[in-house]
């Protein structure tokens, strides 16, 4: 990581701590904010957070590793999560998944070479009456079919 990137990240973290506080109960909102902005919480970010909150970096890592929406390694600029649970499955998940894989040239759990998209499966996202459903960053898309899903993904930067 370049020095100015580190400085910018440190500034972000300081800002989040100012906003949410330095108590332990603020840890998740802080991690979520770093995740939202940088798409992952790097080793350096973990150390900074630990230092400013006066806890051990291992504590920070252990929390990150518990939650499936927090990452400790780099992700794509956009995180796409397709629901894999049964109602979406019955509504045509597999056809949508196959189309996305073909189009992006990656499997679930992978990131495109240009770092544009990380593709993941997730469990029921509460849209079972309108499946298949997927979440792109924090937006939800429903009633997908292969063509619609691919089109949505082609439009994100």
């Amino acid at each position: 990581m370049l020095v100015f990137e580190k400085n910018a990240l440190s500034e972000d973290i300081e800002e989040f701590i100012l906003k949410f506080g330095a108590e332990r109960s603020a840890l998740l909102p802080i991690l979520q904010s770093v995740q939202r902005k940088h798409k992952y919480v790097s080793d350096f970010a973990q150390q900074e957070i630990a230092r400013l909150m006066n806890i051990h970096p291992v504590e920070v890592y252990s929390v990150i590793s518990f939650y499936s929406f927090l990452h400790s390694n780099p992700q794509g600029r956009n995180i796409v999560r397709l629901c894999q649970t049964i109602s979406c499955d019955m509504a045509g998940k597999i056809a949508v998944a196959d189309a996305i894989k073909r189009e992006l040239g990656i499997n679930f759990g992978e990131t495109t070479k240009d770092k544009r998209i990380t593709l993941e499966y997730t469990n029921c996202v509460g849209m079972c009456d309108q499946g298949p459903a997927m979440i792109v960053n924090e937006r939800v898309f429903t009633k997908l079919d292969p063509e619609k899903a691919v089109k949505i993904l082609s439009e994100i930067k």
Partner: peptide, 21 residues
């Protein structure tokens, strides 16, 4: 942050307190 078990009330409280759920 994407953990089903956090719906269990004591896990939820752990999560609110900044811990693993």
């Amino acid at each position: 942050s994407g953990a089903y078990v956090c719906g269990e009330e004591t896990a939820l409280i752990e999560s609110l307190e900044g811990n693993r759920g």
